[in-house]
Design a protein around this nucleic acid. Structure first.
Lengths: 147, 147
DNA sequence: GATATTAACTATCAAAATGCAAGTGACTCC
DNA sequence: GGAGTCACTTGCATTTTGATAGTTAATATC
């Protein structure tokens, strides 16, 4: 019902374009779980407490959208797990930014944290402009429409 | 029906916590529009093409969630506009990161771009770890649950 | 002073998405 | 051959979304 192609070029806004492909809670939480190694249907289902039909639909929508791919890990019985594609993996930093925001503004009670495995420090994600290193939000920005 | 308080502490995951407050397409697009100066109901409605009841609900949910605040700009007739709170403004960098992802992976056709008003360059948002400057995704991370 | 217009909604109802519970298919293990 | 596992599907109730029309409180116009 929503192939990747048909909605492209609907809007010039890259935020809207991005949200068309993953703009719902479950999809983002599915990506989070797969990234942390829960690559199988049942692992994700019990982790999220999501209804089975909903998870099935989300997984195939994410696969269709090119964020996940199925990989057969057992021929008999036929079993697949789900892996992030390049596009899916590239979305993980966005989740990190959402996590940082959630931690700053939803901070009551205990929170899980992101740890860098190389040296064990607590990661603090922020969004910057790669061009000059300035954190987004510190300089006035403008949206320029295409010609 | 969803006050800010009652869901807090439901999960220790800051991503899930964040998404509880803004994890839907319309809310994020509303924030985008308000940030670019469309602070009034009708401006947002025509910009997004959203149904009026849905927009009303989103605006009050976002206000309830502490991302927006109403400001009366006319006493007679009584009229309000919507402004970002600190928490709402702090979410803008996440939208920038989503936009960058959307531009990278949804790039067919013309796209609008973010311009830095100080020197006019095209902004390229990326998420990094503030602690060491490493882009998120370049180092292995682990989620640590609270004790 | 009646009528039109503007801005910000609310009300009503149909359509779509979500969610729960139970069931199915393809196996393996005992 | 019965029980268990994994990855779902089916059917149906509930919830959310969306389209359309109407409302309220005013000002502006004829």
């Amino acid at each position: 019902m929503d192939t990747t192609q048909e909605k492209l070029c609907a809007t010039p806004c890259p935020i809207a374009r991005g949200l068309e492909r993953i703009g719902d809670r479950w999809s983002m939480l599915v990506l989070r779980d797969i990234e942390r190694g829960l690559t199988r249907y049942d692992l994700i289902r019990t982790s999220l407490g999501i209804a089975p039909n909903i998870l099935a639909r989300r997984l195939s929508a994410l696969t269709e959208a090119g964020l996940l791919e199925k990989r057969r890990y057992s021929q008999r019985p036929p079993r697949d797990d789900y892996l992030l594609t390049d596009a899916g993996r590239d979305f993980i930093p966005v989740l990190a930014a959402i996590a940082a925001w959630g931690a700053r503004h939803n901070g009551e009670g205990a929170l899980s944290r992101l740890i860098d495995e190389q040296d064990g420090h607590v990661v603090e994600p922020i969004v910057i402009d790669k061009v000059n290193g300035a954190p987004i939000g510190t300089r006035r920005l403008r949206i320029e429409l295409p010609e």
